[in-house]
Design a protein around this nucleic acid. Structure first.
Lengths: 189, 189
DNA sequence: CATTCGAGACTACTGTACTTAGTCTTGTTC
DNA sequence: GAACAAGACTAAGTACAGTAGTCTCGAATG
């Protein structure tokens, strides 16, 4: 049933996902849903957990057996592919995890760990590794969401831009790894 | 009145912005709003235009009189600052501009032009300039939205990560500018 | 075989939000 | 002083989220 909700969110948009529509799709009347889920907020929490779990699985599968450049490329591609395929529920993965610690937070942690494992191959200092993780996430998340929102008007293939961007990141990583024993990256400020 | 709506969206969240709340804030009854705006979709369209206009102004002001590295830094900082200050309406700037061409689209174009002007200083080929614009937007947009969503759990200053990331981008740009006469960026695939 | 028990569906109802239609007041203009 | 337009209002209708209490069917148990 959470799966059906996910399908609606992905195909028709997260904001058009309504309990009434979900009930209809299941051949049930709306109030009956409350026998299975505690309401809209709870449903979204479960969807978030589902999305994070699938994303983590996809990323892990993509990066297995690879390291450095190939691993980063595979990770980036998998991330972007996930966003394209799961527009609706992906948006939920970001929803401010509020105050209460959620069970889904542990899954989010898994994703960070995967990134850390891959970027660890570059032998950066601890702080720089964190910088690099954040940069990679920003890069890929930003591109994927802008793309999904139709933000790229120019008639140039998005694939090429994405690849170009990822290569630039990998190049920067390599440079930081070899000569960057100081805190500042490529070009000093 | 659109300004009041923007303030609500920024301070209390875009999804809590309701016509009833806006009416109360203005000291009138909800139906009276329809004398000023055609409804919720129209209000959001106007908010989007407002947000894009302010963002474009901020970016232009930040980058005036600068070029290359300093200009990119200023642009990135201004963009991030805007997202932090206008969480609510910023989200609207991305909303798929649908099928109908909106007047707000022209303003969005202005922002692209600003980026193009700045990155043009690196003397890249036309296609690479587009790649670079997209990369910069992805980078900055991604970081800002992840940050706003509370996505950075690690206890490392976000400021430092942001600066690191921007420097890495500038470094990559410079490298591409000097030796990159071929299509592929830093490290070949 | 009969009873019980519980999962999961239902009807009925409340509260909130968006929206439309038509009316009334108020200040300005001729 | 009268017509007019802007902008407020009341009334009413729709859709969705959520709550309370009821009914039914199938399985486990005596």
């Amino acid at each position: 049933m959470v799966a059906v909700a996910a399908e609606i969110a992905d195909r028709e948009g997260l904001d058009t996902l309504t309990l009434a529509k979900l009930a209809t799709r299941l051949g049930i009347k709306p109030p009956s849903l409350f026998n299975h889920v505690a309401g809209m907020p709870a449903l979204r929490r479960e969807l978030r957990a589902l999305a994070l779990r699938e994303l983590a699985d996809d990323l892990a599968a993509a990066a297995v057996g690879k390291s450095l450049g190939p691993a980063v490329r595979a990770l980036a591609d998998a991330y972007r592919r996930f966003v394209r395929a799961h527009r609706g529920i992906y948006a939920l993965t970001l929803s401010a995890s509020g105050n209460e610690p959620e069970p889904a937070d542990a899954i989010a942690e898994r994703i960070v760990t995967i990134c850390a494992r891959i970027l660890g191959g570059y032998g950066l200092r601890k702080r720089e590794t964190i910088h690099a993780i954040r940069a990679l996430r920003s890069l890929v998340h930003g591109f994927a969401t802008l793309e999904a929102a139709g933000g790229f008007g120019m008639p140039v293939a998005a694939d090429a831009s994405f690849a170009w961007m990822v290569e630039m990141f990998i190049g920067g990583l390599e440079r930081t790894a070899v000569n960057g024993r100081d805190e500042s990256p490529p070009a000093g400020r």
